[in-house]
Nucleic acid binder design. Structure first.
Lengths: 332, 332
DNA sequence: TGCAATTTTGCAACCGGTTGCAAAAAATGT
DNA sequence: ACATTTTTTGCAACCGGTTGCAAAATTGCA
């Protein structure tokens, strides 16, 4: 068993409170006392038990990091940024994998049992109601990559997916395509819905351009490939705005395998700008989502909420931009 | 603040111990008592504080999941498997990102402060000494994807990298290549060293085949691409065994961009068989590393160690196999 | 040097649970 | 019905810390 406060106190010949105080900054300890205690602690190899102290302080510095997206490579980057960012601030990410978990209440209970100081929900496919459950349970929550609304009920940090849809549509229009299409991710995801509505609101301004749509059942390579293979069998569009990059890459592979070429026969524009999209043998034109900013901002917001749990919910939206690579033909 | 044991006890009109007992299985509680307590708990929305109980039981069910590899897509799968596997057993992964962390002691201290029940180190690039630090601190540790030795000092679960090197060499020999090469990952990584020595021990049996080597400074696309670009400028080999898949894909992109073609001009065999390697527009021939088995076995071992912390250290090695796709030319 | 103001220290209660032990209650046997 | 065994329950101490409060020690100032 590890060394405890009491043992240090005995060895240093002081009270337990004295030891406790030398290890809490801001406490009143004389220089001599501090030295005595630190010496004893060093000799014994003592380090305070964070969980025991959390009992009285009410702070664990544990942050639930909840996600359901463990198949999209962009989330590796998201986890990297979150874990490092949290660690730098002395917070500890307790990772919760929601895959196959149908009952959000279950995760809420679990995280409450561990007295997490806050929860970050990182997902674009979870319904807004999910993060609200945490809020209702009195746990500070930030929904990263969530849907931002004018009247947010929990803190949301992300992008304006409607605007991204418009942006993609404008880009395809400007390239002179006469038949464009939306190939979305999972239909129920808010990100899919918003990109869809943005895309078609823009296309409505161009009634002479044909615009169609379909959905892949997943933000995944296989789903994109599969859907595109079937689209290619019947009158495909000239260019597709795909749900995200990994879906786009699936679609690209389908295009190539079916004897078409991209961007000559069919154009593709993705969304996310994940690292891999820049690889020379993929070279995907895509809309850049500023992941780093989103994560940093989420952490900042979380830290702010730890001080003020009743902070008024806000939406933080970051601008996206088109990264031109090789999967759209040049404007005529 | 959350509901506590005491409040439930008061409402149910019983002692605190009675409440505690109804929530610890295996404890002696009469049916009537259990019902009374559960009713009160339900009405109050009580759920026990896991950290408080850990104080007396000495168990937190927290498992440190330590890694330094947040850039290799294969680790997303690793995290997925670990988090789900641990969750299924009622354990909670506390994620630690070691990127930029030079001092292992620091992480050890941090994990000790949180009284983790055990630590999984998931990395092929961390030195064996790193996981030993945990063992020395009295924390049960499993090193996944680590180097297995005949006399393990901590539990290791992984593959036989030396054998993989041999396997790759044999494969290239059998394909009739006359100049082969090893393009390793970071030189200090044990995985690199072992694959290197296996590769050359096999090639030593074929003195008439030219064999050269070099190292990329990282298991990454950029490192692979960069290294291959420079190799292509001077007398490249006919086929390369690359450090891992992501390195291979970087190398492939360099080959294609330099006007060579794969497998016609230059062959590539990778290692890992990550999901992406099977994508039709990558289609990499590679050595399959049974990640799922490794993770499952690591978790199993960890669970076993929770019951018996002094369990004798063992190495668990899983067989790899070649997955033939399109980046090696057929045997002559 | 003496006295008030300030700082440092220890006591003891508390955070939210668990558990050994003995008393109380229920079950069993005759 | 009573004695005996078994099960259930509550008391109180404990897990490893923190913290309000008052006593003790130190400091400042006349």
């Amino acid at each position: 068993m590890a060394i405890t406060l009491k043992e240090v106190a005995e060895r240093a010949g002081v009270s337990r409170s004295a030891v406790s105080r030398t290890f809490t900054d801001g406490a009143s300890v004389s220089f001599k006392m501090r030295r005595k205690v630190e010496k004893a602690a060093r000799e014994l190899g003592y380090s305070p038990n964070a969980l025991a102290s959390s009992l009285t302080t009410g702070r664990t510095k544990l942050i639930g990091l909840v996600s359901n997206n463990f198949h999209n490579p962009i989330f590796l980057q998201v986890f990297d940024l979150f874990t490092r960012g949290l660690q730098e601030r002395g917070l500890r990410p307790l990772l919760v994998n929601l895959t196959n978990e149908l009952d959000p209440e279950h995760s809420v209970r679990m995280l409450q049992q561990y007295s997490v100081d806050g929860v970050v929900v990182a997902s674009s496919t979870l319904p807004p109601g999910f993060s609200r459950v945490f809020r209702d349970a009195g746990v500070p929550v930030v929904h990263s990559f969530g849907r931002s609304t004018a009247t947010p009920q929990v803190h949301v940090v992300g992008i304006d997916n409607v605007e991204c849809g418009r942006m993609a549509a404008r880009e395809l229009v400007s390239r002179g395509y006469e038949h464009v299409a939306f190939l979305g991710g999972p239909k129920p995801a808010t990100s899919t819905q918003d990109r869809y509505s943005g895309f078609f609101s823009e296309m409505a301004l161009h009634p002479n351009i044909k615009a169609s749509y379909s959905f892949a059942h997943d933000y995944s390579f296989d789903a994109g490939r599969h859907k595109m293979l079937s689209l290619l069998k019947e009158n495909p569009a000239q260019a597709y705005f795909c749900g995200d990059d990994v879906l786009s890459i699936g679609a690209l592979s389908a295009i190539q395998d079916s004897g078409y070429s991209c961007p000559e026969d069919i154009g593709i524009i993705g969304l996310n700008d994940m690292e891999m999209s820049g690889w020379e043998n993929i070279n995907l034109t895509t809309i850049h989502q500023p992941i780093q900013q989103i994560v940093h901002s989420s952490i900042e917001l979380m830290v702010a909420m730890l001080d003020d749990p009743d902070r008024y919910p806000e939406s933080r939206i970051f601008a996206c931009s088109i990264i031109e690579r090789g999967t759209l033909r040049p404007a005529p």
